[in-house]
């Protein structure tokens, strides 16, 4: 549930490059249907700021000539938009049936233990958070996880491959 007072109120600025990308998306739809750009634009905002804050949503509303509520209700409906700050790397593990048949739950337990934080919480260094997500359309390569904003995919996970991934990301910082 989105509570606007929960989100940081720092004003945001959209760079000219970002605004150019917005304009390119808006051009895909007929005159007056710029609201169609809302989901793609929210993805761009999240890729830029790592989450979607209330001031950012207000700015998007202004840009698309929408009421702020039209943006809030969309951002809160879809699971991909983070309405509060996350770790720099969010490990999203599929937790749906087919993945569980081949060990997804054990992988989630391992990640929790390895990172030392519960689902949804951020590690003290700000680098990681993790959560279970629903079927990622990769059930034949299970267990799987993805990391935004490019949604890089990691398949056939084992405890060892998860350890290596976390070590690599830590080194990268």
């Amino acid at each position: 549930m989105l509570r606007v007072e929960d989100t940081v109120q720092t004003p945001v600025e959209f760079s000219p490059e970002l605004l150019n990308k917005f304009a390119d998306i808006v051009s895909r739809y007929p005159e007056g249907k710029q609201k169609s750009a809302l989901l793609p634009i929210l993805h761009l905002v999240q890729a830029e700021f790592q989450w979607v804050s209330a001031p950012a949503m207000d700015k998007v509303a202004e840009y698309l000539k929408l009421q702020p509520i039209e943006v809030y209700e969309v951002a809160s409906f879809y699971t991909m938009y983070f309405l509060r700050p996350q770790g720099k790397y969010v490990l999203e593990v599929c937790r749906t049936g087919p993945c569980c048949l081949v060990g997804a739950e054990k992988i989630m337990d391992h990640i929790e233990q390895k990172l030392g934080v519960k689902e949804g919480d951020v590690t003290p260094d700000g680098l990681f958070s993790w959560r279970g997500v629903e079927c990622l359309a990769a059930c034949g390569f299970a267990p799987v996880l993805q990391i935004g904003p490019e949604y890089t995919f990691y398949e056939n996970l084992t405890n060892d491959s998860v350890d290596k991934l976390i070590t690599d990301l830590r080194e990268k910082g």
Binding site: L39, P40, M80
Partner: peptide, 21 residues
């Protein structure tokens, strides 16, 4: 057009709503 993460948007009329933002 990218979706936002919602199984229901596979249902064709939900998909159209989503495509309309």
């Amino acid at each position: 057009q990218p979706g936002g993460g919602a199984y229901i948007c596979g249902e064709e009329t939900a998909l159209l709503e989503s495509l309309e933002g």
